[in-house]
Amino acid sequence: MTFLQQLINGLHVGSIYALIALGYTMVYGIIKLINFAHGDIMMLGAFTAFMTLTTFQLPIGVVLLITIIFCAIAGMLIERIAYKPLRNAPRISALITAIGVSFALENLFLILFGASSKPFPYHINLPPLSIGPLQITWITIITLLLSVGIMLMLDFFIKKTKIGKAMRAVSEDEDAAQLMGINTSTTISITFAIGSALGGVGGVLYSIAYPQIQPYMGVMPGLKAFIAAVLGGIGIMPGAMLGGFLMGIIESLTKGYISTLWSDAIVFGILILVLLIKPTGILGKNIREKV
């Protein structure tokens, strides 16, 4: 396959990593928590879509919408039940709780759906688009358009709307934000809702690309998206997008040119290298305070 073909494949999976990475980075930005249950939210999204597709046979647009709403609510509930009581506890407690939530979700779905993989029942039966020697599937095109569209909307939301500004204020200085009259609890809830909705969309897109779903499906992509977030600079939204696309491209190129078996090792190796050279991530900066 040509280099360009690999690049396009990389962009496809990378855009999904970017969507999931945004959830990690938004939550980290606002409450300094690595939400290890985020990968399982992605799985939750995949199963929600699976259920609505198989039982109700709804069109994919409606399925996506239901998934978004369901995952947003799930994210808010998890925050309220598991993380909010630990707001003033040491950070390690919240981190361990996140791992606990992750296990709880995985096991809940094991009980509900069993361990075996299920085929994801959505296909696009259009022939791939051929541009010269390149073959671009419609799934790739739709995934890219959808995820880039969502990212642009998110960027606008964070930069221009009142709630977006409140989110930035809380993530920069929670006390000062409270003194502006911002309800930080609500703002944190909204952040979880948006992050989880993005994770849910990521889950659906991932399941369409790799159409097998099972309760542990969120672990590996979740981990990679987390690495993408760290790679780009955790807490920084453009960093998560950049990191996600980079991860996808590197992974696809190693699979194409070096070895399929080694691709994960190489991706993780690159993370270690970047962190050695620039511990704050590619777009991370050291913020110095002015006195």
Partner: peptide, 15 residues
């Protein structure tokens, strides 16, 4: 405790 990553105008709007 100004929001250092936001513009002067945005800080005032948050007020």
């Amino acid at each position: 405790r100004v929001f250092s990553q936001m513009s002067v105008l945005e800080n005032l709007e948050l007020g």
